[in-house]
């Protein structure tokens, strides 16, 4: 992934929960950055080392449902494997997403995880191309 001077992921406040937002020159990068924002709900992504990888493959009819399922797939992998992810390589071809999520097992002492993310939601779910041609992918996640 090309290093970027601009911060590509962020959170937006939403009631009791929190919104995750990823930006990118491509839709795939926006999806990858939304996933980094998801990690950041739990811990500082910079504290996570990329020591092992998990493959994720999905197919959905529309980009918003694909984002919803993508974030839910990461939640599932974090929960069932006890992992945190630092970095995501995402490929998008039409309706199909294939990705590698790089991370390591949760280390409570080092990662100080704040909270579990329980799922992505359809609230504030938005995938769109901005005027400058870049992409944004965002939704509220339930914690």
């Amino acid at each position: 992934m090309a290093p970027s001077s601009r911060r590509r992921f962020e959170h937006f406040p939403h009631e009791a929960d929190i919104g995750v937002r990823g930006r990118g020159e491509t839709l795939a990068e926006a999806f990858a950055q939304a996933a980094v924002a998801l990690t950041a709900v739990v811990t500082d992504p910079a504290s996570v080392r990329a020591r092992q990888a998990v493959e994720i493959g999905l197919e959905e009819d529309d980009p918003e449902t694909l984002l919803f399922e993508w974030l839910n797939a990461i939640v599932f992998e974090m929960a069932t494997r006890g992992l945190l992810f630092a970095r995501f390589d995402v490929d998008l071809e039409g309706r199909r997403l294939s990705a590698r999520a790089h991370g390591e097992p949760v280390d409570v002492g080092r990662h100080c995880p704040a909270v579990e993310v329980k799922g992505a939601t359809m609230t504030g779910l938005r995938v769109a191309q901005e005027r400058d041609g870049s992409w944004v992918a965002e939704c509220v996640v339930d914690v």
């Binding site: 959170h11 406040p13 009791a16 929190i18 704040a114 914690v143």
Partner: peptide
């Protein structure tokens, strides 16, 4: 009680 403030604000 219900939250009166977001996690972000609280942090």
């Amino acid at each position: 009680a219900g939250r009166g403030m977001s996690r972000h604000q609280a942090r």
